[in-house]
């Protein structure tokens, strides 16, 4: 399958297979008017299967949020048709309004306009905790 190479923008590679649409939504890519390619279930030596997103425009991206959603992705920055930078993401220490706490007893379920804040409790085990009720949420495995 051939997808045109991009001139200026990003190639988000090594996305866990099946997760590209989640990234697409969080990055609000549907609001852009540039070309975007989503490749799902591509073969990968390292991962077996993977997803890839190509964005043909340099847009401001919240790297912390992307690192929270999937810290294993690689971001290639493309300028003039060439890769000029390869970013390795890491899980941010704190994320705000990316996900909601699911604990029905948590104040964040009922308090109006309260920021949904999570802090990284264990980087190795990929555990975040709700800032309010401390409920633990484990991010996906590698």
């Amino acid at each position: 399958m051939n997808i045109d190479s991009i001139q200026n923008g990003y190639v988000i590679d090594h996305i866990k297979a099946g997760r590209s649409m989640e990234l697409y939504r969080h990055l609000k890519l549907d609001s852009l008017d540039c070309s975007i390619a989503i490749i799902q279930n591509a073969k990968s030596e390292r991962m077996g299967r993977k997803d890839i997103i190509k964005i043909d425009q340099e847009i401001p991206i919240d790297w912390d949020m992307l690192g929270y959603i999937d810290p294993d992705v690689t971001v290639n920055v493309i300028r003039g048709g060439k890769r000029v930078e390869k970013k390795q993401l890491k899980m941010p220490d704190r994320v705000v309004n990316v996900m909601r706490c699911k604990n029905p007893r948590c104040i964040s379920q009922v308090e109006h306009e309260l920021d949904q804040i999570f802090t990284l409790a264990d980087r190795e085990k990929r555990v975040y905790r709700c800032h309010y009720c401390e409920t633990a949420y484990k991010r996906s495995e590698k």
Binding site: R105, C106, I107, S108, E111, H131, Y132
Partner: peptide, 10 residues
């Protein structure tokens, strides 16, 4: 005192 967890943090 509040029945919701984390209310004092907020």
């Amino acid at each position: 005192r509040h029945p919701k967890e984390g209310a004092p943090v907020a």
